[in-house]
C-alpha cells in the first residue's frame, strides 16, 4: 500500500507556503502574534474562538486551516477515518509558564481555566478536529527535532491498522517567537499518478530542507 502526500504546507519566518509555493508573507518583524493575526485576516477566517487559543494552538490550528483550504476533506474520507498526528519539541511550554506565573504567589492566586486547558499540547489537535469535524485518531508526540522517520512510522502503522483513510501529520513547534510548522495531508494512493509525492521519510526530509533553504532553521528555545 503506497501512501501519497496530496498536499503540504509550511509556516515559518512570517511566511506561509503550500506545496512549496509562497502564498502569504508578513512584512512586519514584530513576532508571532502579529504575524498569525495578519495571516488569519488575510485568509478571511471567520472563527472567533481562534483568539482564545494559546500561541501553540493558534499555529497548529492555522496550519491545518491552510492545509485544508479548498479541500472538502470529509467528502473524500469518513470523519472517523481521518486522523491528526502531530509532533513538537516544546510541548506547551509557553502557556505552561504563564499558568505557573498565575499561581506563584499564594496571596495573588488566580489560575485561569482558559490558560490551563492549553497546557496540554494535544489541544491544538483538538482545536483542528473541532473546526473540521475530524473524528479519527489524534495524537501529539514529542521529539527534539522534526523527525521524518517517527512521523512516517506512526502514520504508516495507523494506515496499516486500517483505521485511517487520510491523515494530517507533521510538525508544529512554537515557543515565544520561535515557531515552525510543516504539515502533510496523506492519503492512500488511488491513481498512481506520476506527479504524486510518495509519503516516505526521504521525501519528508527533502521537503523540510527545501522549506528551510534560506538557512533560518528552527531555533530552539
Amino acid at each position: 500500500m503506497a501512501l501519497i502526500i496530496r498536499k503540504y504546507c509550511a509556516i515559518r519566518d512570517a511566511r506561509i507556503s503550500v506545496d512549496g509555493k509562497a502564498v502569504f508573507s508578513y512584512e512586519g518583524q514584530d513576532g508571532f502574534k502579529k504575524f498569525i493575526r495578519a495571516a488569519y485576516k488575510h485568509y478571511q477566517t471567520d472563527y472567533p474562538k481562534f483568539f482564545k487559543m494559546d500561541n501553540l494552538s493558534k499555529l497548529g490550528f492555522f496550519s491545518v486551516e491552510v492545509l485544508l483550504k479548498g479541500e472538502d476533506i470529509l467528502k473524500l474520507h469518513p470523519a472517523e477515518k481521518t486522523g491528526i498526528i502531530l509532533t513538537n519539541a516544546s510541548s506547551s511550554l509557553e502557556i505552561d509558564e504563564k499558568h505557573f506565573e498565575s499561581i506563584k504567589d499564594r496571596g495573588h492566586y488566580f489560575p485561569s481555566p482558559s490558560n490551563f486547558v492549553y497546557t496540554l499540547p494535544n489541544i491544538m489537535a483538538g482545536e483542528a478536529a473541532i473546526r473540521h469535524k475530524i473524528k479519527g485518531e489524534n495524537t501529539v508526540l514529542i521529539s527534539e527535532h522534526f523527525d521524518p522517520e517517527l512521523v512516517f512510522c506512526l502514520v504508516e502503522l495507523a494506515f496499516k491498522s486500517k483505521l485511517l483513510s487520510s491523515c494530517i501529520c507533521g510538525w508544529v513547534e512554537q515557543y515565544e517567537n520561535n515557531y515552525e510548522s510543516l504539515l502533510f495531508l496523506v492519503e492512500k494512493d488511488k491513481n498512481n499518478s506520476a506527479e504524486d509525492i510518495i509519503f516516505e521519510p526521504s521525501n519528508l526530509t527533502n521537503i523540510y530542507k527545501l522549506e528551510q533553504k534560506d538557512g533560518r532553521i528552527n531555533t530552539k528555545a
Partner: peptide, 20 residues
C-alpha cells in the same frame, strides 16, 4: 489491538453523546 478518536466537539467538555 487499539485505536484512538476525537469527539470534534469541545476542548474541555466531553461529548454529550459519547460518539467519540
Amino acid at each position: 489491538g487499539g485505536a484512538g478518536s476525537n469527539d470534534a466537539n469541545h476542548i474541555s467538555g466531553p461529548s454529550r453523546t459519547g460518539e467519540g
